[in-house]
Computed example of a mutant assay.
Amino acid sequence: MQLDIIVPVLMSCALLWWISRGMTWTARLTVAAVTLVLIFCVLLFERSSH
């Protein structure tokens, strides 16, 4: 894997852990899935625009 994929995923996981301390597991998984989809969409957009 490349660094431009690993770093945003790790940062979003850390942020998700910090924010989701009061959330249920279902809400945590939903937010994590949406975050990962957004990260991959941004990466795909950046790669296609170059």
Rank of each mutant, 00 (worst) to 15 (best):
L36P: 01
G22L: 01
V42K: 07
P8S: 07
A14K: 06
M1D: 03
W25T: 11
G22F: 03
W17N: 07
P8E: 04
R47M: 11
A27C: 02
L43P: 02
V42F: 15
T24P: 01
V9R: 04
H50D: 12
L44W: 08
I5C: 05
C41A: 15
S20A: 14
W18M: 07
G22H: 04
W25E: 14
L3P: 01
S48G: 10
T30F: 09
S48I: 07
W17S: 08
L38A: 15
L44E: 09
F45P: 00
V7S: 06
G22R: 11
M23L: 02
Q2N: 13
S12Y: 11
L36S: 03
T35M: 14
P8Y: 14
V42Y: 14
Q2I: 03
P8C: 06
D4V: 05
L36T: 07
D4M: 02
S49A: 13
L44P: 00
L10Y: 14
L16F: 02
A27Y: 02
L38H: 11
F45K: 06
T24E: 02
A27K: 11
T26Y: 03
L10I: 09
V7K: 14
I19A: 10
L43R: 09
R47E: 09
W18G: 00
P8R: 06
A33C: 14
G22S: 13
V31E: 00
F45M: 07
T24D: 08
T26Q: 06
V31P: 00
C41R: 06
V7E: 10
W17V: 05
A33G: 14
T26H: 12
L43W: 08
I6S: 04
L29A: 15
R47F: 03
W17C: 07
W17F: 10
V34P: 00
L16V: 00
L44H: 01
S12K: 09
L29K: 04
L29F: 15
L10A: 13
T24Q: 05
L36Y: 01
I6Q: 03
S20I: 02
I5F: 12
Q2P: 15
V7W: 03
A33S: 11
T30Y: 05
E46R: 12
M11D: 12
W18S: 12
L3M: 04
F45L: 12
W25C: 02
V9S: 10
V9L: 15
M23T: 01
T30Q: 02
W25R: 13
G22V: 00
L38C: 13
R21L: 06
A27F: 00
S49H: 11
M23V: 00
V34S: 07
C13L: 15
L38Y: 14
V7F: 05
H50A: 12
T24G: 14
W17T: 05
W17M: 11
C13P: 01
